[in-house]
Design a protein around this nucleic acid. Structure first.
Length: 217
DNA sequence: CGCTCGATATTCT
DNA sequence: GAATATCGAGCGA
């Protein structure tokens, strides 16, 4: 339908991560009829590269877990983090790279908030999908979603959304290597009183040193 | 609010 | 054996 096209994901991974801020992530649960639709605006992402990025799963080449990062772009890569939580990525890279993926870290819930609250066992909307493990729990995403095509899938897809007023960049959360890269991006607004940007409350609570990566003109 | 800590699978040393 | 793209409970201020 109106999914982002394959070519959208054929750019440098960090560029795709930045451009995914403000896009709409849609999850369709087919168990019931009519199917239950969950969706939200992507408010936080991180880029993970290949041999150029020591923090990436793909840095040391393919393994059973990360092989999807080396396959077609626009595909879902889910892995189990810390043995407890699933993390949802979309493969993306420029033509000169052999691997790469964007970690979707948080969404602002749009449709199906009550269903997400039930999956998450919380009634606080700011705790529904504000972190990679929380997001997959809210959207019922696990290893069975691996390999889905977000440009064509009927159950997990990415569409155009809204244009963020400000995008903030920072170093990535929970990594100790690759701290030189500012490959985390967060949906933000401009505070005209303080004359400063502020991050969306629907992003994860982790706050480091931010830089303004983009401002709407 | 902020900090520490346990759970727990895959990969790396 | 150690590290890891995390989260929530428990505790102290």
């Amino acid at each position: 339908v109106d999914c982002l096209s394959r070519s959208f994901y054929a750019q440098p991974t960090e560029e795709v991560a930045k451009k995914l801020i403000g896009k709409k992530l849609v999850r369709v649960l087919e168990k019931r009829s009519p199917p239950n639709i969950l969706s939200g605006i992507i408010v936080e992402t991180e880029a993970y590269g290949s041999t150029n990025d020591e923090a990436s799963h793909a840095y040391n080449g393919p393994t059973e877990r990360n092989s999807i990062m080396f396959g077609e772009i626009g595909r879902v890569y889910v892995y189990l983090s810390y043995g407890n939580h699933f993390c949802f990525n979309v493969t993306a890279r420029s033509i000169d790279r052999h691997a790469g993926a964007v970690l979707i870290r948080a969404i602002q819930p749009l449709e199906g908030l009550f269903t997400m609250m039930r999956f998450r066992k919380t009634v606080d909307p700011y705790l529904v999908a504000s972190g990679p493990g929380r997001l997959t729990q809210a959207l019922n995403i696990n290893l069975t979603s691996n390999g889905l095509d977000v440009t064509r899938s009927k159950i997990l897809l990415i569409k155009n959304g809204i244009s963020p007023p400000v995008i903030l960049g920072s170093s990535r959360v929970g990594v100790s290597r690759g701290m030189n890269k500012q490959w985390r991006y967060v949906f933000a607004y401009w505070d005209g009183i303080k004359n400063l940007p502020y991050a969306s409350r629907y992003a994860s609570k982790w706050r480091g040193t931010f830089a303004v990566a983009s401002i709407k003109t």
